[in-house]
Amino acid sequence: MGGVNTRLAPYFLTAPGIVFFVALLGAPMLMTFLLSLHSYDFNTGIQSDWTFANYIEVLGDSYFQKIFGRTFGLALLVTVICVLIGVPEAYILSKMSSRWRSIFLLVVLGPLLISVVVRTLGWALLFGGKGLLTMISQALGFGDAPVSLMFTFTGMTIALVHVLVPFMVISVWASLQKIDPQSEDAGYCLGASKLTVLRRITLPQAMPGILSGSIIVFALTASAFATPAIIGGRRMKVVATAAYDEYLSTLNWPLGAAIAVLLLVANVVIIASYNKLIERRFAKVFE
């Protein structure tokens, strides 16, 4: 075999991807970071100075603090709800007969393929002034006043849980699939009740799936745009919609860039430390 040729082959093979990514991912990301270090003047535009003022403003201003707080609170709440409803659903799916299971997997996972805009529109229709909520409230005799969850934190939470819970289900489902069903039988035969088997044998083995599902849901909620933009609107801004407004309404790009960089850093730090945690905790136990 040609020594040099073989040694360089993997670099040739990965070269197209690397070149493409350096030019079209590396450069834009770097430029955004540099942009966030410039200041902005409403009359003359982007300045050529170097400053951390944008970061200081975002981190110090109570307006942005509130938005960041709301975003991470929302992410946490959505994650917790997804665990609470997604884990049992994945377990139920895993216990179904294969015919029902394939139907319901389609129902539960299928929405992932449908555009987030469409799914959020559904909630907007349900939440809106003449939506289902109002009809239910009127039918139950709470008066004719329209009930709306549009532009509320609750509404955003419900819609985001709907958008993201399939990720939790699929992640838990994948780790349930790896469990040796005989290990549950072994639990019963050793005297454990059904509940004990669930708690002591099944759930701990599903833990890697629950944790990785959580990090996916958390990260995607923290950076979600479409759903908060449509359901939350201007009244319930989150980080992504705030950055959008800085870029496309206020036109203060450097400030928007600083928000984006902070969002990215928070995202990466949380994902990386979570992965490290999972690795440390489970390296000895699972493959």
């Binding site: 990965t14 690397i18 991912l25 923290a222 984006a260 969002l263």
Partner: peptide, 29 residues
């Protein structure tokens, strides 16, 4: 090969970047 893990991580890195961040980066670029 040397650098394999780094190259793999680089080519998979957009998964970790919020779409919004990619959006603003491309807008400016």
């Amino acid at each position: 090969f040397a650098g394999r893990d780094i190259i793999a991580a680089f080519l998979l890195s957009p998964l970790m970047i919020p779409h919004l961040v990619l959006g603003v980066a491309f807008l400016q670029f």
